[in-house]
Nucleic acid binder design. Structure first.
Lengths: 219, 219
DNA sequence: ACCTGAACACCGTTCAAGT
DNA sequence: ACCTGAACACCGTTCAAGT
């Protein structure tokens, strides 16, 4: 296709990471191999190693790349409200890149995530919560965002239809032996349980504030 | 080593799954290949396929195997107390098999987990919580257990020392640019934040009950 | 019925060679 | 400085052959 002498688009880290993210978005991390990625970039497989040290480094760069997409709340936002918005924004990015949460856990944080962690801890530190509760709160919110998203996406390293998966599960169950399970899945399929993510998020945030107050009053 | 004519121990599903779990416990899922597993069982690599359809099926069997290790609370236990105990017991099993949480998310549930899910949903259904809150509560607790454990274990598909990892991270950070991050990691290393798991678990469970009461009173 | 080696289509990565 | 093909040590799995 490309004319023989035509200079190829140059390879660089950003182009490689961008193509890797696109490939993962389309086909999941299971389909992301150095060879297939190089092919997509119209390059030899080994050329990639001139710009990334290893596949693991590439994966870490991808995660930090999507971390940069997480919208920051405006500077004046009250601390715990900012925490809340970041949690919601993070989930949105994870939904857009369903392969990201798993790597988020597996890869060492890059500069973007390191900065973000510092910022989140600062928000908690300045929230007025007791230091111990601020510490726990940071983890509680983090775990909720990751746990919820991972569960929601079924850790789909390939993009399969969640609804059809649920229907298949329901079909295998619905013989009366598992009434609660069948009802639960049906609740999902019929949309009777919206915004569980934000409900539990608020349960955690409100619970932290309430616990902090009762501890301060009790001592 | 084995005498030439000596009859080998027979291969069967349970022995294969057991050896796979042991291998994963010792070296992580990254080191678990059909060839290495067969070698451990003193069998040809392909012999395994007489007992499991694929590696994916084997992984699913492993997860259901560790699910069977989760201690059940005695029958009379109050519903939400039972939920609490199951959550704690599940985390204990995950700590014993650090490779399990990731597969838990990725594999379709086998018979053990299917039964357990039904049982947990029954506990929530009979807890007195409104159906919608029971539904959310089931997810909230599940997400907490998985999210917390995954984060705690750093998704370590190979057993690396968590503490040394934290120390390395701290060393890379501690130049004054990331004061909150450094303080946070130091809190961990010096054991100043115990039992975060149970604190947040109770935050969720108590929050559900409180929200249920206030909704019942408000309407 | 159960076992197995050879073979196929893949991996990530090393290395020596090109420009 | 950047690119690259051949090669190495692995994968999961198919298949045809053994017992």
């Amino acid at each position: 296709m490309a004319a023989n002498g035509a200079p190829r688009v140059q390879l660089d880290r950003d182009r490689i990471v961008g193509a890797a993210v696109a490939l993962a978005d389309e086909e999941g991390t299971g389909a992301l191999s150095m060879r297939r990625l190089a092919e997509r970039l119209d390059a030899g497989a080994m050329s990639l190693y001139n710009h990334v040290a290893s596949k693991d480094e590439l994966l870490a760069l991808m995660v930090d790349g999507v971390a940069a997409e997480i919208a920051e709340p405006p500077p004046g936002t009250p601390t715990l409200e900012a925490v809340r918005r970041i949690a919601v924004a993070t989930r949105e990015v994870f939904v857009a890149h369903p392969w990201a949460p798993e790597l988020w856990l597996r890869c060492a944080p890059g500069p973007v995530r390191t900065r973000a962690m510092e910022e989140h801890l600062r928000l908690f530190a300045e929230s007025g919560l007791a230091p111990e509760l601020a510490h726990h709160g940071y983890h509680a919110v983090n775990n909720h965002v990751l746990g919820y998203t991972l569960q929601e996406l079924g850790m789909s390293s390939g993009p399969e239809d969640l609804e059809s998966k649920a229907r298949a599960y329901l079909a295998g169950i619905e013989d009366g032996d598992f009434p609660h399970s069948a009802a639960h899945v049906r609740d999902h399929l019929e949309g009777r349980t919206s915004s569980s993510f934000e409900l539990v998020l608020d349960l955690i945030l409100d619970g932290l504030v309430r616990l902090d107050r009762s501890r301060a009053a009790g001592e």
